[in-house]
């Protein structure tokens, strides 16, 4: 794309230097303004800038975030259940509830971090 622009500029310069055509050309087209230029440049680039795909590094970071969020939720839920069971001597029940709630909390973490991606604070 850049090559296309430079070729255009080069072409017009050649035309400018070729004597006769110079006056005609200069009268016809005013020097394009910067706004016009950036408009043409954006049109040539096709897709506007914000829709460009994110670098894969960000995707890797997000993947690590999601997996550790889920694991941490399950871990903490299970640990809490286990400790409550040991304290209250109700052996399997709090552990079982803790695993389930921990899994839910892990999913909650993921949902929150996905919502948070734009940088706003947590909703719901």
């Amino acid at each position: 794309m850049v090559r296309a622009i430079s070729r255009g500029a080069h072409g017009s310069r050649v035309r400018l230097f070729s004597g006769k055509l110079m006056a005609k050309d200069a009268g016809k087209q005013n020097p394009p303004s910067l706004d016009e230029f950036s408009k043409r440049l954006n049109a040539m680039r096709g897709e506007p800038e914000p829709d460009a795909p994110k670098p894969s590094g960000a995707a890797w970071g997000r993947a690590m975030r999601v997996s550790s969020d889920l694991l941490a939720g399950i871990f903490v839920g299970t640990l809490l259940g286990f400790l409550l069971d040991r304290w209250l001597e109700t052996t399997p029940w709090f552990l079982l509830a803790g695993i389930g709630l921990g899994f839910a909390a892990g999913l909650r973490n993921i949902a929150r971090s996905m919502n948070n991606d734009s940088g706003s604070s947590s909703d719901i």
Binding site: G73, A104, A105, R112
Partner: peptide
């Protein structure tokens, strides 16, 4: 249901933060 889940979710934050950096 929500309160225990949110409490566990909150308590898991430091674990998640620490484990992520360490594991990487």
């Amino acid at each position: 249901l929500i309160v225990p889940i949110e409490i566990i979710s909150f308590l898991s934050r430091p674990i998640s933060l620490a484990v992520r950096l360490f594991a990487n």
